[in-house]
Simulated scan of single mutants.
Amino acid sequence: MPYWRLASFYFFYFGSLGALMPYWGLYLQERGFSALAIGQLVAILLATKIVAPNVWGWLADRQGRRMPIVRLASLLSAIAFLAVFVADGLAEMALVMVLFSFFWNASLPQMEAATFSHLGARVNRYASIRLWGSIGFILAVGLVGIGRQHLGNEVVPLVVLALYVGVWLSTLAVPEGRAVVHAEESPSLAGLLRRPEIQAFLASGLLMQMSHGAYYAFYSIYLEEAGYGSLAIGGLWAWAVAIEVLVFLGMHRMLDVFGARRILLATFVLAVARWLLIGAFIAVPTVQILAQALHAATFGAFHAAAIHLAYHYFPGRTQGRGQALYNSASFGVGGAGGALASGVLWTTLGASVTFVLCAGVAALGGLLVWGWVDRGRRF
């Protein structure tokens, strides 16, 4: 198994996420965009996950090869991102974000499927590779935080571009996974999607990411308005992902002991607590440290358990499209819907009420898991 070559992709990919998500709202705010516009632009970043993974997933499943698609998508995302530096106004910035995020969001689901093909029967070891994405995220958050303090927000797109190039270079070293022999009696994707437990699984992923909408779009802005400096903001984001690394290190054992269903249920309970803590106690640093530590559950543990379930729910030729559907439903529909809604709520009801509503969305997702996902069975 090409462990370090796979790990390098996750390192750069989630490093680019670490440079983008915590600081993109602040960068857009400095360029004169309103809260509503920022919500719309962040929603675009996430909305392309609805279409892009499915288009590229269909192509990969049809061709039976994933790495050429991952390499092409990674290269085109870096090229398209160059237009950020010259985009002027909401319409131009929106168009640029549609272009680069369409390609950027195409690569991860196919790399997830390629990683599992390299893992073979050792699927529980996925988390030990994915943790390098968390390490990349932490380093990028720290680098940009220091850069902002000395150079301002102009450093944000420069670091993002450099990391996009790193993503593309890392894909050149990853070999194609082992070919999978698909049984003729493998279920159809349409048949799988008629199963209530799979519908509930996808809907719960949508609701979990929808509950993160205000967090991704406005948390850094909320912190800055409460008096936190650039290093403190970066430190809180880095702390969240540092705790997440510990979860990834022990995730294969947790899946063996508790199973994906119980882990998912716990993450929704902790998501409710997290959004309430952020909304009510933004000015209390110790509470924010605790709330950010819960990122290990609401993103790290949730994502690892969900990817594990998606691998089992979508076998054979449905694997690429299944991973793409999970990404589209959760990060695409859920993330975009959450960002759009939070942009409206932020300007009309305020930050605290917005995070209370995010907690309600997370509670609804937990009810779906409790009622339908893998009852009486455990992966």
Rank of each mutant, 00 (worst) to 15 (best):
I233P: 02
R261G: 03
I263W: 00
Y228V: 10
M251N: 08
A238S: 14
G235L: 13
E224W: 06
Y228N: 06
A242S: 12
V257P: 00
F248Q: 06
A260C: 00
R253L: 14
G227M: 03
L223E: 09
G259I: 05
I243C: 14
L231E: 03
R262P: 00
F248R: 09
L249E: 00
E224G: 07
Y228Q: 03
G259F: 13
F248V: 03
F258W: 15
G250H: 07
E225I: 01
A240R: 03
L236C: 10
M254H: 04
I233F: 12
I263T: 02
A260N: 09
V247A: 02
Y228R: 03
H252M: 09
G234P: 10
A226T: 11
A226N: 05
L264M: 15
V247G: 01
L249G: 07
L223H: 09
L231V: 14
E244W: 00
G250I: 09
R253S: 10
Y228F: 14
G229Y: 02
R261N: 03
L236A: 12
H252F: 12
F258N: 04
E225Y: 05
A242F: 14
L246M: 12
L249H: 11
M251H: 02
E225Q: 15
W239H: 05
E224F: 10
F258K: 07
